[in-house]
Nucleic acid binder design. Structure first.
Lengths: 161, 161
DNA sequence: CTGCATGATTCACTAGGTGAATAATTACAG
DNA sequence: CTGTAATTATTCACCTAGTGAATCATGCAG
């Protein structure tokens, strides 16, 4: 790992800068989409996870999100109140709340796919298909290099302690 | 602007996803760097702006940041308390507080350049110089397409209302 | 001088998130 | 079987960052 005073080969140090800016922009675009569905991006992530793993416990969900259990309680309180998610005590282990999407939840999940496509279209608008493919390849490589292949769309976890 | 059910040419809709993730990652890396200097990324942005425009007023700063004046008061309170910034009433217009970096502030600003380079090195680590240059070109293009060429490193503004 | 505009500040409030303590339940050693 | 430890969900106090309204001092046009 290079560590000298100019490790970026003479190029100004701006990829990180651009990634921060464009990442925030992409997050905002996605938030615009989810706002129309009455949920936040974090809640959208929760809906997707529950849709993929019906019956998941809050504990498992907090692990998947990289969040803490108390945060999950608040998220599920909100989604349950909005009628998108149900809590059911597991009959096998009564400590566990099994999480499932309601019919409305499934409907929102479907809408989220269109939201993601609208976001994608807005983001690559102005790039040629070849440029978009090239960008996708480079970002994928960076993502796998950093071990960020997770499914979660929420903020990058930990690191602030 | 395409709006059909599959506007991304058969590629899964993930550039937005990757940008969000990698952007959050880049932001965290930069936060790691500034944390060592005892400031937040927002405060680092303020230090850079004041360093570039000594004597700037809080009002001008809030415009540059895209923030509100009351937020700037809190930021400057913090930086003044940390001994990095001074407030001086303008003799020409006594409503105005002229902001300047102290000696420590200048020193922190210098350190921020190294922090940005360390962040950059960490981010492109694993890419060839050619790949990094290609990525830089594509991100720059996206950034200019979206009109994001601003100097500010803080979060993408507005859009949440 | 009067009245309005502007810069800074304070204040109450919100959103999102963290960590400790607690209650209910289950697992398990002896 | 019994008591002790671990696990799940929940509540609570707290924190940080940020917003918008109200206030105060100052400048400026007429």
């Amino acid at each position: 790992m290079p560590a000298g005073p100019m490790p970026t080969g003479g190029r100004p140090a701006r990829i990180g800068f651009l990634l921060s800016q464009l990442g925030a922009h992409a997050t905002e675009l996605f938030a615009d989409q989810t706002r129309g569905l009455g949920i936040t991006p974090s809640e959208a992530g929760v809906v997707r996870i529950i849709g993929r793993s019906p019956g998941i416990s809050q504990r498992e969900l907090s692990d998947t999100l990289g969040s803490v259990q108390s945060r999950v309680v608040a998220l599920i309180d909100r989604l349950e109140g909005a009628g998108l998610v149900t809590r059911t005590r597991s009959s096998a282990d009564r400590r566990i709340q099994e999480l499932r999407l309601t019919e409305s939840g499934v409907s929102v999940l479907r809408s989220l796919r269109y939201a993601a496509e609208a976001q994608e279209a807005a983001i690559v608008d102005g790039l040629t298909p070849e440029q978009a493919a090239e960008l996708f390849g480079l970002l994928s490589k960076l993502s796998s290099l950093r071990g960020l292949d997770a499914e979660v769309h929420v903020g990058y976890r930990d690191a602030s302690r």
